[in-house]
């Protein structure tokens, strides 16, 4: 009986100690980890879109509720004007979802840049959507609100040769991004106004947002 109690007590204390340690460590590293993930997974695409921005778009970010989904938005500042946001949307590709980072200018509603964040397409065929910069460059300057389609389907997008499904996925992702943008535009404008008036890093405040 004594032994049984000892077993229970030792294991309980050990587990409690372990749980407490891990919980506090998790809290302590949470922000850092989120930032690292942004920097290395989505970071390259974001920084590519915001080439020439005067702020650090990875730090200036906020979250908005879109129905039941929460989306992250990254803010870019050009020539003193805070008028550009980037956000992520997804399109169905050949080997799963293709993640797209779409940067858009709120004044002109035009695409500033598109970058592919995650994809699992066939290496050397569909994967060129990410590795070949000339493919995503064609979207630059187009109005985001139009419906994107590859040329084979009667649209305006030059498909990657041999990777029509991937190109369709990218086009679908962009169309989806346009829909998200239309839904959230009023709120985005409100948020951006805050950013330009404060013009400081709102790291604390954004956490609740």
């Amino acid at each position: 009986m004594r032994e049984l109690i000892k077993m229970v007590v030792v294991l309980t204390v050990l587990s409690a100690f372990s749980g407490g340690l891990l919980a506090s460590l998790r809290n302590g590293t949470k922000d850092k980890i989120e930032y690292q993930q942004l920097k290395f997974v989505k970071g390259p695409a974001i920084l590519d879109i915001f080439k020439g921005a005067t702020n650090n778009p990875l730090l200036d970010r906020f979250k908005l509720k879109d129905g039941t989904v929460e989306r992250s938005f990254f803010v870019g500042k050009f020539n003193g004007k805070t008028d550009t946001v980037a956000f992520e949307s997804y399109g169905k590709g050949f080997g799963g979802d293709i993640g797209l980072m779409v940067g858009v200018n709120l004044d002109t509603n035009k695409i500033v840049g598109v970058g592919v964040t995650t994809l699992s397409e066939t290496p050397g065929v569909g994967s060129r959507a990410k590795t070949d910069p000339s493919f995503v460059a064609q979207f630059k300057g187009r109005p985001l609100e139009e419906t994107f389609k590859v040329k084979a389907d009667g649209g305006q997008v030059d498909a990657l040769s041999g990777a029509t499904v991937t190109s369709r996925g990218v086009a679908a992702g962009l169309t989806d991004a346009g829909l998200i943008y239309k839904r959230l535009k009023p709120e985005l404008e409100k948020k951006l106004k805050n950013f330009s008036t404060k013009a400081v890093k709102t790291k604390k405040g954004e956490k609740n947002g």
């Binding site: 891990l22 460590l25 590293t29 850092k32 980890i33 690292q36 993930q37 290395f40």
Partner: peptide, 13 residues
């Protein structure tokens, strides 16, 4: 788990 969290926070690549 401690190592995993620390690695994510400091040496993400």
């Amino acid at each position: 788990t401690v190592v995993e969290l620390l690695m994510q926070a400091f040496t993400y690549p």
